[in-house]
Each structure stands twice: as C-alpha cells, then as structure tokens.
Design a protein around this nucleic acid. Structure first.
Length: 770
RNA sequence: GCCGAGAUGGCGAAAUUGGCAACCGCAACUGAUUCAAAAUCAGUCGUCCGCAAGGACUUGAGGGUUCGACUCCCUCUCUCGGCACCA
C-alpha cells in the first residue's frame, strides 16, 4: 500500500482546484441561495503566522460546509495594503513601501494557498491599488458633501516616532499601538469624520445583529452613552454663561465650585487680571503634558483659581470658578459643577484646595424647575470621539481636497479621481506635522478647477482604517469602473452573512465599518444599515510557553515547517481540534501528531477496504447517522473541536468493521471540509470519482435512525447511579418503576427501606429516594 | 475604580433546556512487533482504600435551592481581556 504523503497530494490538488476555478463564485446560480462568507483580510506583513492559519483554516471549514450544503458561497480575500506598519518596515529596510508591500503580497499569496482555503482569488481586492482607493476617496467626498468630513484645528494624539496623528482608537494606555511610543498632544489642523453624529445609531444597530455579546458590550462601552442634563451657570459681572453636563442634576444644591478644562474657550475671557499669570502658567504646563503623564497624575489633582465667580442656579450662592486638567475638554461641555459631597474626584480637588464640601438632601424635582426657568435641558452625552483620519504619512490614499487661494477649500471633482499617490524619493515622515507628500512640488501644486488659479493639494493621507471600512462591499463587484459597487451586485451579496475575525478590532475596524455602512445607507447608496449580519471571533494562538508568539521571545511556531512535517490537512485539523474556536490557546508542538495519526488511519482504512465492500450493516448505519447529525450541527455552530472529536469517534467505531462503499463515501464527505486534500485524493484516486468531492452534497442524516428503540436507563438511589437497565423507548412510569425495583443491584439498597419518592425522566433516568 | 470573560485529571479539553463528570486527543505506563529504534497495533490511565469485586471522594473556596448542580442563586479568591479623572 502507498504511504500517506500529504506534501505530494496537497500541491497537486491545490493546482487542480485553481485550474478548474472550483471556488470562483458566480453572482447568480440557478436554484442556489447566495452566501457571503467573509474572513478578515490580512495586512501584508510578509509572513503568514499561526494566527493567520487559525483565522483562515477553521473559517474555511465553515465555507466548505456551506458550499456542500448547497449554497452559492463567496469566500473572498484581499490585502489591507496601505498603512503605517508596512511603511515603517519599508523605511527600516530602505525600500519603497510599494515594492515592499507588493513583494509581501506575492509571498503571502503562496503561503495562503498552502492552507488549502477555498478563496475566490478572482475577486481579490488590494486597498493600495488606484482602482480601489479611487473609491475610498469617493467615499471621503460623499462624507464631505454631507458635512460628515471636516477639517479643524484640534488637539490630537501625535506619535513622535511614527510622526503622525493617531485616532483615539489607535492609542493604548497613552502609547502608540504600533510602536509603543508615548503619545503627545499636538494642536494640528486635521481631517476627521463625525462618527459622533452616528453614536446613537451605532448603539441602536447593535440590537439587531448576531454578534458575540462581549463585542457588543465593548462597542457600547466605547460609545459610552450617559443621560443627564445640561445646566447653565451665570457668571458674576459678565454676560458669559458656563454650561455644564451632569448625570446627577439632583445633587446641584451641593455644587460649591466650578471647574473648567484648561482648553475651555471661556478660560481666557473670564480670568481676572490678578490671576492671569498663574492661569497662563498652568495652561502652559498642561499643554506640555503627555497623555501618559496625565494618566500617571490621576491621584494628584492640580489646578488654579480664575478669580471669577458663578452663581449656583439652585442655591443662588456665589461659587468660585477653577481650572483643572481633570476636567476633559472633549467630554460633555468641558466644564463641570463640582459636588464634592457626591463625587470622589470633586472631593479630592476640594480637599487639596480647601474648597467647601456640603452635604445636602438630594432633590429630584430641581431639574424640571430649572427647565422651566430655561436654565437646564435634558441631554445625552457620549464618550465616543470623532474619528481623526488625517495621517501625515506617505503610504495611504491621498485625501482628495484642494486649497485654492481664491476659492478656499474645495473637493476634487469625482471625474478627477483617483488622486494618484505620486512616486517619491524620500518616504520618511518629516516630523513637521506635514506629510512627505508636501515636498513633491509638481504633485502638490495644481490648478483650481473652479477658477484655474494656483492651488495646493491636501498632502495628508487617509487612515488605513478608512480603506478597510468598506472593502467587503468591493468584493461583490471588484472590477467595477463606474461605481464603488453596483446596485445589482449589492443585492446579490450583501450584507455579509458571516464575518470571522479577531476581537481586537471590536472598537476599531468593526466600529468604523458599521459607521461607513450607516452613512452610505443614510444617503441612499446601500439598502442595508448593518454590514455584518453575523460575526464570530477566533481566539488568539499563543506560543508553547503561553506567551504571545514573538521573535524576541523565541516562541514563534513557523506554520511552513509544521506543514512540511505533517501536511496542511493536519495543521488545519489540529487548529480545529485544539479547543473552542473563540478561546484560542497554546500551540502544543506534540499534540498535532494526534490528528496526523487519525488522517493516516483514514488513508490506510480506505486504501485497504476498497477491494471488498460488503452490504450495509444496520447498526453501523445508526452510528453513521448520529455522527452525521452531530458533525453538521457542530460545524454550523463553529464548534470545530467537537466535530473533529466526533469524526475520530466515528473512525474508532468503524475501523475494524465491514464497510459499504456508500458508508466510505459518507465518511469522506464528513471529513472533506477539514481535510480537503486527503479526501480529494481518496475520492478521486481510490474511489475513482470523476468530479471533486468538494462539489458533493453534504450527507443528510435520517432522523428515523437517530432514535434508538431500546435505551439505557440510569437508575439512581438518592441521586447516585447504582444501575443502568436496558428498556424499550417511551416506556411508561409504572413499568419502569417495576423494572428498576426488580434489579438485583437496586434491591441491595432498597431492602427493608421505604421508598419516599420515585422520579422518572422519560428515556433518561429514574431516581429512587429513600 | 467600572464593564466583561473564565477557573474541570499531568496537559488541550467534553458534558447546549439541571440528569452516568472527565468523551476525543496529547503525554505517561505495560505488552506485541523489531537485532534495535522509529512507526504501527493491543491495553492501562481523576484521587484515595482494595489482590479483586467493590467502595469513598472529586469540576477554584464556602454556603444555598433541588430527588439530583460543572450547569441555577448568594459570598469570596485567583487569572485574563476591555475602559479608565467621562462629571
């Protein structure tokens, strides 16, 4: 008998499938429903690691299963090609980011193919292609048109290493999520998308989508809705008013002072001359603080008095106005009424600066009273920030705007898209707050299309997350030159039926994609307002030592090496088998031999049994039916680990029995989504089938064969199992009682005792209470 | 501090409406095969007592509900993830 040689058969079938275009999805197939199966596209880092495998292999099992179930499955793939990491890596190697990115794409494609994933490469989307980013720019223009894209001077997170502004979502613990450098606050004119306008819609939409509850909670917390009131405070000897947001208007009688954020616009207007020096001093100091320093100083409150006073609208009392950086400029109104008796932070501040703390009775009615007097209104605040999309970097889609000396800021006309990213000599970020594109004079200087006068292009590029916020739409119609996607193709494929990817994108990509979808829906470009009907996450694969795999730790497992040793089918299947998909887990280098042995046994079984198929065996049919039911249900629910376990059990049970050809076929079909190469080889070469096993129908179980006529009934005494008796299905209680009590084992316990209660759970268990 | 997830043999884990805890696999051990090793095959494998039959105990800790709890409720411990001066 020939030995199982995965390397040989895997390459062979991968080529064959490609040649036959087995996984290319047609937009319409008669009698088949379309199913859009999407796995997050990779960013072309150069190497495919185990994490990619864990994302794509089990996800592919699901796609293959759906295809066998008779759905017209589209499983597209592409590359998230623009962005900081690629650019940084290229600069480190002294390479053109484009050359670096595209050579990575080339090698990653090969590696992706080695997984044996049923991707439809004909729909490949690369976000750095002009054909693609033309439409990213178009989306920008649409947002600009309706006032959702704006440019303003804002204090934003500046990474001094990457030399660019970052969105709030890309800063973690005060550090750049890419390079871990401490982020500074910099005042720059930035383009941003007003995602805050959609805060409520983003919140509401969560109710109707099938996503992991934990991810919804992450998004809800990130959006951070809180209800309260905005209350106006009059300032002594001034026409200015201070508006504050509070969730506790009922505590207003205890408000003994006010605090403004240093950035608050009224600070300069109300500060008294005597305090001007100390206030300016304080403003200077806060400006220099990094986000990290602010976090570190949480415990120690700082602040200065402005010299001005306001009137508490409830008590009419005169209260001092202070400035402190514990009040955040971008939340609420950037000003608070301080109620030290009810708020820990206000208390700390009061104690440090000797301000009064007054305990009072809470007053539920004060808000409506203030409303009547026109001093308050009910309001909802969100923690969500607007999405800053300007990047002072080269490797991204240029923002399609022009600055004309006469006409001001004007958008590039749609017919002039795409604004091509020019070739450039020096990619390095300048660090001046301007993109290196600013140096490309013949690109920057343009004629204004309105007045033909001299104008300059916007030199910032867009955040990569803009590219990935809509890529799933393009797969439906990747070559369309006239539209980002045609109405017809949208109808064929969207929204995405299932989306599989990591949870780390919960408050970034997954939020942005929902936002862009909602905007496009709102303005009539889409007919659905949630992009991903169903979302599931894969867990994280850790190194054998339990740490995140990293080169510096030396715990990186190279998938290519494992594939060389065991074959891709084994790696696929082991990844499925190692535990619940959403948990991830440690890569145990020894454990993979378990599935490798299993596949060898399958190989040997089918090669040896081929000669002497016998007629069917009823008992075996039952065993098959149970397995068919369980495996199908498990894959449907992405419980790949128990599905593999069931396949192993099935093999254990059938291995030494006479098998009919139909039963062997069923077994191979059940295994096909997991081990596509091995099953194809056996299907075609041993069973001599003409067509691919991957075009076969998923075997449906016969429910009549699932229920046994005789069942094993557990007999317990006081909740402890004492015997198991064989009885006919659906036996009535009195007969069961009779049988149970006549068992020798049970008699031992019941002898001379009174039966207090007899509990019977049909077809499962009887419990005798003594 | 707030929000969330989790804790089951030496290890990964199973136990989808409360009903035989530990399926399936890894590792380990015993045996067969082999000159030998690998591979393969047959078996043992939660802990304790016992030659065995059998019995007792066991799902992070403690309590509760129930005929019956890994599963439900309360209290606590630890681990991981997210947010974090959000008024």
């Amino acid at each position: 008998m020939i030995k199982y040689n995965p390397q040989k058969i895997e390459k062979k079938w991968q080529k064959e499938w490609e040649k036959k275009k087995l996984y290319q999805a047609k937009d319409k197939v008669k009698g088949k429903k379309n199913f859009y199966h999407l796995t997050m596209f990779p960013y072309p880092s150069g190497d495919l690691h185990m994490g990619h495998w864990y994302n794509y292999a089990p996800s592919d099992v699901y796609a293959r299963f759906k295809r066998m179930q008779g759905l017209n499955v589209m499983s597209p793939i592409g590359f998230d090609a623009f962005g900081l990491p690629a650019e940084n890596a290229a600069i480190n190697r002294n390479l053109d980011p484009k050359i670096w990115t595209y050579s990575n794409i080339k090698s990653m494609k090969k590696q992706l193919d080695s997984i044996g994933v049923s991707f439809d490469w004909s729909r490949e989307v690369i976000t750095a292609e002009p054909d693609y980013y033309k439409w990213t720019q178009w989306i920008f223009l649409k947002l600009y048109e309706v006032g959702l894209a704006k440019k303003e001077k804002v204090l934003a997170n500046w990474c001094p290493h990457c030399k660019t502004i970052l969105a709030n979502e890309q800063v973690q613990d005060g550090r750049c999520e890419r390079c871990d450098t401490v982020v500074e606050q910099k005042l720059l004119e930035q383009w941003f998308f007003k995602i805050t306008d959609y805060a409520q819609k983003l919140l509401d939409g969560l109710e109707k989508i099938d996503w992991p509850e934990t991810t919804k909670i992450l998004q809800r917390n990130w959006i951070g809705r809180s209800e309260g009131a905005q209350i106006e405070f009059r300032i002594e000897n001034s026409e200015y008013r201070i508006k504050v947001f509070t969730t506790r208007p009922d505590t207003i009688f205890g408000a003994t002072f006010m605090v403004l954020a240093p950035e608050h616009e009224l600070v300069k207007k109300i500060t008294k001359d005597a305090q001007l020096g100390q206030v300016n001093n304080y403003l200077e100091k806060t400006k220099k603080k990094t986000e990290l320093e602010r976090i570190a100083e949480v415990k120690e409150k700082t602040g200065v008095f402005t010299g001005a006073y306001a009137f508490n609208p409830a008590t009419k009392e005169k209260i001092p106005i202070w400035i402190s950086d514990f009040v955040l400029p971008h939340y609420g109104t950037g000003a608070i009424m301080a109620v030290p008796a009810y708020d820990e932070r206000d208390l700390e501040f009061a104690e440090k600066f000797g301000l009064p703390v007054r305990k009072i009775d809470l007053d539920d009615k004060i808000l409506s009273e203030l409303e009547k007097r026109g001093l308050a209104e009910r309001k909802t605040s969100y923690r969500l920030h607007d999405w800053i999309i300007s990047r002072q970097r080269y490797w991204g889609a240029p923002i399609p705007m022009i600055y004309c000396q006469k006409c001001g800021i004007i958008p590039v006309r749609e017919k002039d898209l795409p604004v091509l990213l020019p070739k450039i000599k020096d990619y390095k970020p300048s660090g001046t707050g301007e993109s290196p594109l600013a140096e490309v004079k013949d690109w920057v200087n343009v004629k204004c299309w309105k007045c033909s006068g001299p104008a300059r292009r916007e030199t910032d590029t867009m955040d990569t997350f803009v590219d990935s916020a809509w890529y799933f739409l393009r797969y439906a119609d990747p070559k369309n030159k006239k539209e980002f996607v045609s109405k017809e193709k949208l109808k064929d494929w969207l929204p995405v039926d299932i989306y599989i990817g990591g949870q780390e994108h919960a408050t970034k990509h997954l939020l942005y994609a929902r936002f862009i979808t909602k905007v496009l829906y709102n303005y009539g470009y889409l007919n659905f307002n949630e992009p991903f009907v169903k979302m599931r996450h894969q867990g994280l694969i850790l190194g054998p030592d339990g740490n995140k795999m990293s080169k510096s730790r030396g715990n990186v497992i190279d998938p290519d090496e494992i594939v060389k040793k065991f074959g891709s089918d084994s790696v696929r299947m082991y990844l499925c088998f190692m535990g619940p998909y959403e948990n991830g887990g440690l890569w145990d280098p020894k454990a993979i031999v378990g599935v490798f042995r299993f596949l060898n046994r399958v190989w040997n079984l089918i090669n040896s049994k081929f000669q002497n198929f016998k007629t069917q065996n009823k008992e075996l049919d039952k065993i098959f039916n149970k397995a068919m039911k369980k495996i199908g249900e498990d894959i449907e629910n992405l419980r790949f680990n128990t599905a593999v376990s069931e396949l192993m059990k099935l093999l254990n049970e059938i291995e030494n029995k006479e098998l009919a050809k139909d039963q062997i076929k069923i077994f191979l079909k059940l295994l096909a989504p997991f081990a596509p190469h091995l099953t194809e080889e056996l299907w075609r070469e041993v069973l001599k089938n003409k067509k691919s096993i991957h075009l076969e129908k998923w075997p449906e179980y016969d429910s009549k064969l699932i229920e046994e006529e005789t069942i094993y009934l557990i007999v317990q005494i006081n909740g402890r199992t004492r015997d198991i008796i064989k009885v006919p299905r659906d036996l009535n209680e009195s007969r069961v009682r009779e049988l149970a009590l006549s068992s020798e084992k049970i008699k031992k316990y019941t002898a001379g005792k009174e039966i207090i209660k007899f509990i019977y759970i049909s077809n499962k268990l009887a419990n005798i209470v003594l």
